[in-house]
């Protein structure tokens, strides 16, 4: 008799213990599949890139691990400094300009106007279209023999294509930044707009009735409220622009161009041993954008703290 109850108690205990192990394992097990993508594929890729940038690439017939040679060579190349400047320039200008234009667009869309439903439908179009199509669109419009140049010709403003200003394939990067803006204004707007919709207008109306003018209302009431949305959007947009390849490769100058394009060029060299130099460049891109984002997030936290949110 006693022995049976004892066994029963034991099985129960065991069951309980099993359940608690199961419970403890529940969260890690559930996270595992997605984490595998992150740990194995993504981190694996970065680690391999890092190891290669330090000279480990037996498959290309190179193994002088560890060496900083490839970073040194990269830094010694005067073109690197130019590239880094351009990469920042092409990434930052559309991010800032796009954010301002998007806020204004989101605010305007909140108003009531004819065709609002249709507009809310149409403005998202570029968001859904691949960057490469954006590139194709910009090419058709803005080359010196493109449709706008032809319209200018028909209007008698220009004689030959050369009279039309060169907008693509120059260091100035007009084409690159146009594609970024065209694609990203809808994205940022969508986010800011949905934050606005979630907020309602009570605070702003209250500020208005309390005598604040439009500008004051915007700066002190609306802006702080949509700030999380703006930060979230720029957190996606800026690193994307910073690391984007296709757009600057096609629409930028042959030389100089952004870091990702430089990395591609070096990687594409017939000489496989140069691929390690490309790894140094892509690691640098990742490092810079990582550091920038951390600084940005810290600044934002501080801003939130000052505003007394946390």
């Amino acid at each position: 008799m006693t022995s049976t109850t004892d066994t029963l108690g034991l099985t129960q205990k065991r069951k309980l213990r099993q359940r608690s192990i199961l419970k403890r394992l529940y969260v890690p097990m559930m996270l595992l599949p997605a984490s595998l993508v992150f740990l194995v594929l993504f981190m694996g890729a970065l680690i391999m890139a890092f190891l290669q940038s330090l000279g480990y690439a037996p498959i290309y017939g190179v193994n002088d691990f560890p060496t900083f040679r490839y970073y040194r060579e990269m830094l010694e190349d005067p073109a690197f400094r130019v590239s880094i400047g351009l990469t920042f320039y092409y990434a930052l200008v559309p991010t800032i300009l796009g954010t301002i234009l998007s806020i204004y667009l989101a605010l305007s869309m909140r108003k009531r106007f004819r065709g609002r439903t249709l507009f809310q439908y149409i403005y998202k179009l570029p968001l859904m279209i691949p960057y490469l199509v954006g590139v194709a669109v910009v090419i058709e419009l803005f080359t010196q023999g493109g449709i706008i140049a032809r319209l200018f010709h028909a209007a008698g403003f220009i004689e030959v294509p050369q009279d039309f200003p060169r907008l693509l394939k120059t260091e100035a990067g007009w084409g690159i930044m146009t594609v970024y803006l065209w694609k990203q204004i809808p994205f940022t707007t969508l986010i800011v707009y949905s934050v606005l919709m979630g907020l309602g207008k009570e605070y702003e109306e209250a500020a208005g009735t309390l005598g604040a003018n439009k500008r004051q209302t915007f700066i002190h009431v609306t802006l702080p409220q949509i700030m999380p949305g703006i930060v979230a959007a720029t957190l996606i947009v800026f690193p994307f622009n910073f690391g984007s390849f296709e757009v600057p490769y096609i629409l930028g100058a042959d030389f100089p161009n952004t870091l990702p394009v430089q990395a591609w060029r070096v990687f594409d060299d017939a000489d496989y041993t140069r691929r390690l130099g490309a790894m140094a460049i892509v690691m640098t891109i990742s490092f810079i954008s990582g550091v920038l984002l951390l600084i940005y997030l810290m600044l934002y936290r501080r801003y939130e703290r000052i505003r007394g949110r946390q």
């Binding site: 993504f42 890729a45 970065l46 391999m48 890139a49 890092f50 690391g243 690691m283 990742s286 990582g290």
Partner: peptide, 12 residues
Amino acid sequence: LIVADIAIGLGI
């Protein structure tokens, strides 16, 4: 999302 495609692509 914040790491450049080209870094992932070349690394992988």
